[in-house]
């Protein structure tokens, strides 16, 4: 029964994400299309985090690191391409690019490697140590980005022309939205398949009872590390799109506020729910837009609301609307 209700809510959410920008297009409101694009991108970052946070039970407070790495992949490659400066000339030539597909591949590889290192260290710990250490590693990358002058340091890096995708005019808001929405859909389908796979069951098993997992011959550490890396890659992909949306990347994308916000998307929507991040990101952007339009200090009521959700509405938006999460 609740499963059906959740399915209904998910359908409405997916429908709204597509319908709202199309209506905005008809009414000639490009700003709303941009807001919807932002929702899709933030939701995707949340889908990445949800994998470790919701299904793996690992509270990573450092996912801004991966979001920012994706963003910087886009910014750095594009700036080299637009300035006609190769990234390196010896021993072999590597040039910048304005092709999103190449940027995404670089973002995926870079985030995977860094997540592998961070994960290998942080996953040795658990509980509150894990929270603080993921936070600390993200801060390390944040301060590195601030003090490294080559790519703008504290001021960030502009992407003068949005990067390209074959067959699509990415400068057209609705086309870029469509691209982001399709990417979101792909990551969500991937995430859903992964969770139902043998690997996904092992990940959830490791959350619920690590001892029993070990006893049946599955090492929680390795499962968690793989999940951490995949999760980082999804969030990095979202980061690359976010940099292209704003045509700008700065250390703000790496800051711990960003980590907190990605976490808020997941929690506000519903932890461990497939559509939770989408619901949360949509609610967050709508609130930001509505409250921000009324009052300069909109984060104050947002904080109060968030506090109320944590204290009284456990399970987030999808949880409140669809009831208890069904047990896998």
């Amino acid at each position: 029964m609740t499963m059906n209700r959740e399915f209904l809510i998910n359908t409405i959410l997916a429908f709204a994400l597509v319908a709202v920008p199309l209506i905005a297009l008809g009414m000639d409101e490009p700003f709303i299309i941009t807001l919807a694009t932002k929702v899709a991108i933030f939701a995707m970052a949340g889908v990445g985090l949800n994998l470790v946070l919701g299904y793996g039970g690992l509270v990573s407070f450092g996912h801004a690191a991966f979001f920012g790495i994706g963003g910087y992949a886009a910014g750095i490659l594009a700036s080299h391409a637009l300035n006609y400066e190769p990234i390196m000339e010896s021993p072999f030539l590597i040039e910048g690019t304005t092709q999103m597909i190449v940027i995404w591949i670089v973002a995926l590889i870079a985030s995977a490697l860094i997540a592998l290192v961070i994960g290998a260290i942080t996953l040795r710990t658990s509980g509150v140590y894990f929270i603080m250490i993921t936070l600390a590693f993200a801060q390390m990358i944040y301060y590195f980005a601030i003090s490294w002058p080559a790519y703008g340091g504290e001021d960030g890096l502009s992407i003068y022309v949005r990067n390209g995708f074959p067959g699509i005019n990415t400068l057209d808001p609705i086309s870029f939205f469509a691209l982001c929405a399709v990417m979101l859909a792909i990551t969500m389908v991937f995430s859903a398949v992964l969770i139902r796979s043998r690997f996904g069951l092992a990940l959830q098993g490791a959350r619920q009872n690590p001892q029993r997992m070990t006893a049946v011959g599955i090492a929680p550490f390795r499962i968690r590390l793989v999940a951490f890396v995949i999760s980082a890659m999804i969030t990095a992909l979202a980061g690359a799109l976010y940099a292209d949306l704003n045509r700008f990347v700065s250390p703000t994308m790496l800051s711990w506020h960003m980590s907190g916000e990605i976490m808020v998307f997941v929690i506000l929507g519903g932890v461990g729910r497939l559509f939770g991040p989408l619901a949360g990101a949509a609610l967050y952007i709508i609130l930001e837009h509505l409250l921000g339009g009324v009052w300069e200090f909109w984060q104050l009521p947002l904080g109060v609301l968030l506090l109320l959700v944590v204290l009284f509405a456990r399970g987030g938006l999808v949880g409140v609307l669809a009831g208890e999460r069904k047990h896998v």
């Binding site: 509270v59 976490m263 808020v264 109060v304 968030l306 944590v310």
Partner: peptide
């Protein structure tokens, strides 16, 4: 109200408190 909750709830509620304190002070 948070002592018996898991760390995730604590992180989130105290993150909300930061928003309230910072924005309130700015106000």
């Amino acid at each position: 109200r948070l002592y018996n909750r898991d760390h995730l709830d604590q992180v989130l509620a105290t993150f909300a408190l930061i928003l309230i304190f910072s924005e309130g002070t700015r106000w």
